[in-house]
Design a protein around this nucleic acid. Structure first.
Length: 151
DNA sequence: GCCAACGTTGGC
DNA sequence: GCCAACGTTGGC
């Protein structure tokens, strides 16, 4: 799950009980949250659009998909005039902090052939939420996150 | 700021 | 339904 750290960083997540994954305005990413993600599922927390993009930690889904309140807020950059309370277009799950890991840069992820199939790493990928296979999850958590914690 | 890639929109 | 134009994402 990608987040711009200037909006919500792994430290921001750690300081809060939970955070709604607001602002997703892409149907595929929305559908992942609505149809695939369940309470208890874990995800990599990825810092995007920043100096050092990469995986910064792990989070866990703690509430199933519900309407994203920012779509109804005219002052929000995520406001959607075509959505309505009766028929909300955008939903989001809530996530909570699990752990902060060393920052695993995108460039490092690309160096591992075992991860070449990750949707995150595919050319032109723009989805803010992408699936991770169990093999990929295992490889990253057991082999890449085992290094010294550099904060 | 550039630009590749891809999603959305809207005229037809 | 096609497709050109336009907008957005996000790494670099």
């Amino acid at each position: 799950m990608k987040s711009e750290p200037s909006e919500v960083s792994i430290d921001d997540l750690a300081s809060r009980k939970s955070v709604p994954w607001f602002g997703v305005r892409n149907y595929q990413a929305r559908n992942f949250m609505r149809d695939q993600m369940q309470v208890g599922d874990q995800a990599f927390f990825y810092h995007s659009s920043c100096a050092e993009p990469g995986i910064a930690g792990i989070c866990e889904v703690c509430a199933p998909a519900h309407p994203d309140s920012t779509q109804f807020d005219p002052d929000s950059p995520y406001f959607d005039a075509k959505s309505s309370a009766g028929n909300p277009r955008w939903v989001c799950v809530d996530v909570r902090f699990v752990s902060k890991t060393r920052l695993i840069p995108l460039t490092e992820l690309r160096q591992h052939g075992e991860l070449a199939g990750m949707q995150l790493l595919q050319r032109g990928n723009r989805l803010s939420i992408t699936p991770v296979s169990s093999a990929e999850w295992q490889y990253i958590t057991e082999r890449l996150m085992r290094g010294k914690d550099r904060g």
